[in-house]
Design a protein around this nucleic acid. Structure first.
Length: 231
DNA sequence: AACCAGGACGTGA
DNA sequence: TCACGTCATGGT
């Protein structure tokens, strides 16, 4: 029952919202300019991003900057870094706090995020084109489970399922997970009931976010959710 | 004018 | 472990 529901819901989400084209990147000339809150950079159906090292790093920074923050604000911060020509780990390490803060400010928590981005840049340089282990990322100050999984999935194509607040909100509402399930428990439910495929995980998480913006952003959450008829 | 946003960390029990 | 406060800007 639950087994099948996870996949059934994915198929329904795809019908409702179509492919999302994550992870959004600032440098791509927009295939999906209609999407609210995004300037450009979605690439629906193309799961081969990132194509360059710069894009990979941009995804990682975006994963940090979007912590408890809406994407339009994050885009402003990333474009700020790009405008200042410091959207690269070496450049970030060489930049003054004042300059970093100025760029990061629109995405909120600028004191914490400036520090997080510095620490991550150092780590990223040390990586030398390798794929980091999940535990390695989790050991870094400022990177929790969702940020680690987002980086692994969207920058490195590691099939690890990303769980966020929306995931918890939707699936508790549908009574498919328990209210107090841990991050790892929820992640496990999805991974055990889906083929281990990074393209599927990519699309599923993005669809969850899109769906939640439609039906789970205003209280009471999920009242009009069309997924309820499937359960 | 509250409330929420693609969380993570520090603290005290 | 775990519940709770804190961090901060911007959109609705």
């Amino acid at each position: 029952m639950k087994m099948r529901a996870i996949l059934t819901i994915y198929e329904e989400l795809l019908k409702l919202h179509n492919r999302q084209g994550w992870w959004p990147l600032t440098g791509i000339n927009g295939k999906n300019p209609t999407k609210t809150g995004s300037l450009r950079g979605y690439h629906p159906g193309d799961y081969h991003h990132p194509k360059t090292k710069k894009e990979k790093f941009e995804i990682c920074l975006g994963a940090i900057l979007t912590q408890n923050t809406s994407w339009p604000n994050v885009e402003k911060a990333i474009l700020g870094l790009e405008r200042e020509k410091i959207l690269a780990p070496e450049k970030i390490l060489k930049s003054l706090d004042l300059k970093l803060i100025e760029c990061i400010k629109p995405s909120g928590y600028f004191n914490q995020k400036t520090k997080k981005i510095r620490i991550f840049s150092e780590f990223y340089i040390g990586l030398k084109n390798k794929t980091p282990a999940r535990d390695e990322l989790l050991a870094i100050w400022g990177i929790g489970p969702e940020t680690a999984d987002s980086m692994l999935l969207y920058a490195w194509h590691v099939p690890t399922f990303v769980v966020d607040a929306y995931t918890r909100r939707i699936f508790t509402h549908l009574k498919l997970i328990k209210e107090k399930s841990s991050y790892e428990q929820i992640k496990e439910i999805f991974e055990k009931n889906l083929p281990r495929n990074h393209e599927l995980y990519n699309e599923y998480h993005a669809l969850i976010v899109e769906h939640a913006k439609h039906f789970y952003s205003k209280k009471p959450f999920g009242i009009q959710c069309p997924l309820k008829k499937l359960i």
